[in-house]
Nucleic acid binder design. Structure first.
Lengths: 126, 126
DNA sequence: CTGTATCCTGAAAGATACTG
DNA sequence: CAGTATCTTTCAGGATACAG
């Protein structure tokens, strides 16, 4: 930073192209990615989400949904009925995530097998 | 899990219903995203990486690099010199990540301010 | 049905000291 | 220079029980 390096990697290299260390909303929240996918085709109820998100607990699902609601990528709508009914839907902002996600999903589909193979190879060798 | 799950898949990698639950390599590793960015323009030495990755410890950087090497997205090259010199570079596979990452970075640039505002709003009001 | 309230675990990260 | 070795911390996630 205050040093005089011959050919250093500038400390501001990252902010120029990548403002954040990881992807907001999707980083550091295990289920966020899949939750968004499950809402892609329309609003879903709490219990509806639990089916495709096999294994998720109510607690974690509720936490994830609340967090994502605070980020503005989905909205929670509570209907005054009995039994209670709550729906979650992507916001317009949330929908803008789908494009970038598609790119990442395509990459994963194409390279997941190779990744697993590479890791297995390394584990055998050492 | 105490459940009797008939198909125990790598829960962090393989989807139940959605394409990909999270991004391999980039998910669940805080610094991976930025490390790849730092290698985008060419090989870098260990100490060179520590500059733009301000705050990362040697331990975490080494761990992250090892992990990513095992995934096959980067290679570690050790030169037999004194003082020791080691370079890290993206593999062709690693380079294929840059495209999808660009899409995500663009999204972040465009929406980060809005996200922070939305969260701040939620924390203030409710 | 849609959650909360607790308690617990585990993996990644950070702090610090040391080494070939 | 390029790491390793420990130790501690942190916090998302999971198990379970309970509630409006």
């Amino acid at each position: 930073m205050t040093q005089t390096d011959p050919a250093p990697l500038p400390a501001d290299l990252l902010p120029a192209d990548c403002p954040v260390p990881s992807v907001p909303v999707l980083g550091s929240r295990k289920w966020a990615w899949r939750i968004i996918r499950c809402l892609e085709d329309g609003p879903r109820r709490f219990s509806e989400l639990r089916v495709p998100l096999a294994g998720i607990t109510a607690k974690v699902l509720a936490e994830s949904l609340r967090s994502m609601e605070q980020d503005g990528v989905l909205v929670r709508t509570e209907f005054d009925e009995n039994p209670p009914r709550v729906e979650y839907a992507l916001t317009p902002l949330g929908r803008t995530l789908l494009g970038p996600m598609d790119a990442m999903c395509a990459w994963s589909r194409e390279n997941l097998a190779g990744l697993l193979a590479a890791r297995a190879e390394h584990e055998r060798g050492h």
